[in-house]
Simulated assay, not measured.
Amino acid sequence: MLYKTVYHSPIGALTLAADETHLVGVWLAGQKYFGAAYKEPFIERANHPVLQKAVQWLRAYFAGKRPEITALPLKLQGSPFRQRVWQILCKIPYGQVVTYGDIARQLVQEQGQKSMSAQAVGGAVGHNPISVIIPCHRVVGADGSLTGYAGGLQAKSWLLAHEGVQIK
């Protein structure tokens, strides 16, 4: 069974989803790939313990605190490549950004490959099912500009400004 609740944040309504024991999704209203990995319907359950914990995490984040991602039980569905990219996203510090190319270079080093396209990384970043908490908003273009965000560039801009990032 999958459960959901809606949290009204400064960037709009966020739908949170969980299975019995893990947070499986956080999506902005209208977000690209909303619930893409899940075919069964979500059952409304605001009092679900995992969803309540995620709401507390989001309240702290939007209040300017820096809650740890590890405080939440996360379960991500995706290919091994996407999973690795999402793990890298989790390590980007609050208030800092990296480029898609930076992540591609890290993966090249880890995997001993000759090259990897930043576009492949961008595809994995864009399919992040746990927005805001897994900070895909902290990934920018090679020149530091805002590029692609499944929840919209306005939300990405707001999140980065909230974290004190100077945006080009």
Rank of each mutant, 00 (worst) to 15 (best):
K91M: 12
E110D: 11
G112R: 05
S117M: 05
A13Q: 03
K32R: 14
V85P: 03
G101L: 14
I43S: 13
D143P: 06
H137T: 06
R84Q: 11
H162D: 04
V121S: 00
A150G: 05
L72E: 08
R45G: 10
V24C: 10
Y38M: 07
I11V: 00
G123K: 15
F42L: 11
L51M: 08
M1H: 10
E40Q: 08
R84S: 02
A150R: 08
L160C: 08
L89N: 06
G123L: 14
L58F: 03
I103T: 02
G141E: 13
Q106A: 11
G95N: 00
H8P: 09
L28H: 07
L74S: 06
R82P: 04
K91A: 12
E163L: 07
I167Q: 07
Q56L: 14
S9W: 01
G152N: 09
P80T: 12
W158M: 05
Q119H: 05
Y100W: 10
A29Y: 00
G112L: 09
A120P: 07
L16W: 07
W158I: 01
A29C: 08
E40I: 06
L89P: 04
V6N: 07
G78A: 08
Q83L: 14
R59L: 09
Q154T: 15
L23Y: 01
A37R: 11
P129T: 02
L89D: 00
R105I: 05
L89I: 00
Q111G: 12
Y38P: 06
Y7E: 08
G151W: 01
T147Y: 11
A155T: 04
P67V: 00
V97A: 08
R105H: 13
S131V: 06
I69K: 01
I130K: 00
G35L: 04
G35M: 01
W86K: 11
E163D: 04
E110S: 03
G123D: 15
A37M: 09
F34E: 14
T15I: 00
F34N: 12
Y38L: 04
E44S: 05
G25T: 00
P10F: 00
K4L: 06
A46I: 00
M116A: 11
V85C: 03
C136F: 12
P135N: 06
A161L: 15
I43E: 13
W57C: 10
R105L: 12
I133C: 10
A36G: 12
Y100D: 13
Q77V: 13
I133F: 04
R45D: 12
